[in-house]
Amino acid sequence: MARAGAIWVREAWLAGQLLPQGAMTYLDPTNLLVARPNSQTDALAVAEEALKDGALPFVVLEITRPLNLREGRRLQLAAKAGGTTGLCIIPEGMGSNAAETRWRATPVFDPMREDSTLMRWEIIKNKTGTVGVWYVHWDPQTNRLHVVPPVGLQPGSAGLPE
């Protein structure tokens, strides 16, 4: 991930933006492209083109309305043709049936570490396997994800937070 590039497809009217200094922990902003299409149709076309081409191994697409089966399937086929990874950031409940996997990522409060990036990753759809829950933590030194036990079950903690 450190060497390879990525393209982030985000509709032009959406407020807020990626801060490269914040993102540099996870990927080098030098190799990051941002596409600002005017509509979701254009966004999907850009994402499909980028997925199919394979010049950039990683494509992030932000959508604002649910994908129908045809759109989802086209993205799926494009990703297969280009050998690329596509990640579609969807609002809650707008998943596409064509997706290979669907995840719900929620940040979790970590009382132990100040620079924590602890998250709960729950796989809620998996075409080729089972669903499950992981607690993960990004290690900026090694640029790797570490799977850690859930908060509350770590050594020295009192119990589950709920």
């Binding site: 490269p20 492209l33 596409a35 600002r36 850009v46 083109e49």
Partner: peptide, 14 residues
């Protein structure tokens, strides 16, 4: 190719 669709200036980098 993307630029022919959404305009070359809409593909940006930091």
């Amino acid at each position: 190719r993307i630029g022919t669709r959404i305009g070359l200036e809409n593909i940006q980098r930091f």
